[in-house]
Design a protein around this nucleic acid. Sequence first.
DNA 1: CCGAGCTGCGCG
DNA 2: AAAGCGCGCAGCTCGG
Length: 577
Amino acid sequence: MTGADPADVVAWIVLGRAGGDVVAATLDAVGRECARETLTATDAAAWIADREAVDAPRWVWSDATSWYPGLLAAGVRVARCHDLRLCHAILRDSALVTAADELRAATAWDVAGVAAPEQSAALFDLDEVATPVGPPGGLDAALAEFARQRAAVSGSSDPGRLRLLIAAESAGALVAAELRAAGLPWDAAVHDALLTEVLGPRRAGGGQPAHLQELADRVRRELGDPAASLDSQPKLLRSLHRVGILVESTSRWELAEHEHPVIEPLIQYKKLSRLLSANGWTWLDEWVRDGRFRPVYIPGGVVTGRWASSGGGALQLPRQLRTAVRADPGWTLVVADVAQLEPRVLAAMSRDERLADAARGRDLYSGIVESGTVATRSEAKIAILGAMYGATTGESGRLVPRLRRQYPRAMALVDDAARVGEEGGVVTTWLGRSSPAPSSGWRDSQSRATEAEASGADETQARRWARDRGRFTRNFVVQGTAAEWALAWLADLRGRLAALPPVPTDAAPRSGPVFAASPHIAFFLHDEIIVHTPIALAVAVADAVRGSAASAGRLLFGEFPLDFPLDLKIAQTADKD
DNA sequence: CCGAGCTGCGCG
DNA sequence: AAAGCGCGCAGCTCGG
């Protein structure tokens, strides 16, 4: 291969299903099909592994969710893919795409994220193919959609950014499948011991554990009602009113404002009750198998581009339980999160050099204090969060105007996003993901309010909905761009980890055939990554994690002078200090 | 009996 | 303390 003739370069291999077979079309660098093969389900994995090693193509498939788990189970990892389902959703709505009519017409690709099917040894199992909610699985459908997407990108107002975005989104889809395949190392014994210590021993037959029972008894005593119901909000509210605690809700913050002997045990009861129902023994039995927690991640599951999760509550693991995250023997964890990701992203995308100055090389909130904008770190934090979320009242609302004076560029960016949203417009992230258009109900409300016979109630509702939407679009640009930064971080790190030498070990086969001897990402949560690695590679992994964060910043924001510092530790457990 | 909607709370 | 954004889940209530 000379590399001079684009026909010699394998750029993409598009996969589709036909009955129980896999059909693969090889495309050259200009998108011409130059070969097509049909493979039986049994042969497909080995063929894909071979082409991956020889050509390193970008694999184009309907979605990683339906293709990649089977490959991973068969021991095959791919470096790059193009996830048609996820990219369709981005390009269809992106304001950078100038001609989206054909994409919008291809409604068969408008399918939401679906949970990954259980990994099965039978690769490309027919039952999985029959998934009713998935995107089209045939090769012709994939080729046609891929052509539409390539045309949409090359004809867009900024092909470079969109190419970054769809590559990052697709890499995220690979990572999500790999996260589930490898799992988060979880020590059920540590979890069980923690539950027993906090709640009391597990009761057979579903009875309440002892400590919870004692708290419930104390609460009922203080309420003077041995039959009081603590788990029904309306009933508990009435019980509280009877003893003179005139709360409007039973939420913790409101209860805490009252002085009464029932308050302390009630709040404690709610805390323990929550632990039991959300992450108690039932959760442990259901979600932790063979030393791994394998949640279902849904890339692109949130409108802003953040991931969602389904089942297991992966994105809501209480900090309290992080002590149960334990590396395998001979392995360790590299735990890293980005300090103040969203305000840093805001500084970079608005090119606000003063905010970047406050952030560079230090805690961003302390930097704001040193600039004299506000007096304390906690004020700086409240002000920044208020600016990004659109706070109008309280301490946050009072502090935001000071930021507006000190950081006019950053504030103008979020203020503009809010104004556009209030007016019914669409806003777009740094790389080109656009917010959804307003619903018909929203538009009706706005137009009704401008009519001559509009009632006061019409106007009030329209104004409130407009402001609600403004806060959403205000936050969308920042949260969405932060999600893009995080995807770039993940994607770059994934590549660096794959380049590290495997360490022969018999310690972690539970991580599956691909990752049993190699460092791998084991957890991802918006701005945090946990890598599970053989101890011998921990320092190299830590370097990779830092290096990929720096790369992500450059990839998105070029040479804009801003860093993305990490809080990073190497430890057997993931708990915070 | 099932499902939608509400409340409260975990995470970023 | 919440407030101002984005989520998922458990448990309850209530209507069909």
